[in-house]
Write a protein that binds this DNA or RNA. Structure first.
Lengths: 174, 174
DNA sequence: TGGATATTTCTCTTTTTGCAGAAATTACTG
DNA sequence: CAGTAATTTCTGCAAAAAGAGAAATATCCA
């Protein structure tokens, strides 16, 4: 598949941003390609289009599947595996939020609970104890709220977001 | 400064999570230490407490200052630079959201605008054009909404979050 | 069942990142 | 304006991550 100039630029940029988003360049590029393509592609085609080793494509696709961003599908009359991603950017966002929650918050919540449950906690001064407790509560609230938001369908989410601080006024009235 | 068991565990964990949060271990550890300490520390003390090279502390503190998470302060009667971080976890959160927005969204918004403004955009099929447009709009909305939320003071933010999807009902009534 | 096709796993190289220790610079102090 | 304390920058090594290509494995079909 030949990329046109803007498509190529989009994909290369996505690749550069990948590291900041917690994935490597190839993973991000493949995701960008599938996103723009809008139709399932097979690994060979991805490999050729992006000039990336076939093995690298294989591993990167696995990584994208771990993120639940890409799924394996089959195209009638073709024995090769094909891959596609979601076309709705809001749906993608929801998945990313959820996955990041798991990776960036979950482990810490677990550790903090352990810390507070440990008998060693008594040795710490009360300031430290309070900080750890606060941090845990913060992360729990954030996770809970994130999950609440994830329950909303994308269109409601958009509406909510577009309100911004307008919400504050409504809350005041309540 | 001698760390007690739970404090140490907290700091080590923070360090491990650092990479997932976009900073390296030392940077995250130093931040955790300053957070728990609650009082300004000088570089030498940080270096000793964490068993990290003095130069590494210097660079890591610079990184934390770039994130606006740590600021340099002076302690009366001590010529050494001291460093402290915010003690309010919600205030920290706001800074992190803002900084991540700059690092993870801003550059892409810029690129997507460029893509759409480019004369090459005409060569792309309409699906691709639409996707790029949607993606840009999404990121703009997200940024705008993030900024709106950042305007709220932490306590309002907590209240808002604790409501979760309760907001939806209020919106329905409106 | 045997070849062709497709996919994954392994190994090795390259690149990037992290970090210690030395050297250089800057800022104070008597 | 020496001399000392504090800090930063530089240099080089070590560890980790990314990714290419080969080898191994699995899958399909005639």
């Amino acid at each position: 598949m030949e990329l046109k100039p803007v498509g190529q630029r989009f994909i290369l940029h996505w690749g550069e941003m990948g590291t900041r988003w917690g994935v490597n360049r190839t993973v991000a590029q493949i995701h960008a390609l599938l996103y723009l393509a809008g139709v399932p592609l097979h690994a060979e085609e991805i490999s050729e289009t992006l000039s990336v080793a076939r093995s690298n494509v294989s591993n990167s696709l696995k990584e994208l599947q771990n993120w639940n961003l890409v799924k394996l599908v089959h195209v009638k009359g073709d024995r090769r595996d094909h891959f596609e991603t979601l076309s709705d950017v809001w749906a993608l966002f929801k998945i990313i939020v959820h996955e990041r929650q798991q990776r960036e918050l979950e482990p810490t919540i677990h550790t903090l609970r352990d810390c507070l449950a440990s008998t060693d906690i008594a040795q710490e001064d009360s300031l430290t104890q309070a900080k750890i407790k606060e941090t845990l509560e913060f992360m729990e609230t954030l996770t809970w709220w994130g999950n609440e938001m994830l329950k909303l369908d994308p269109s409601t989410l958009v509406k909510l977001m577009k309100m911004g601080t307008g919400i504050q006024k409504i809350l005041g009235k309540k």
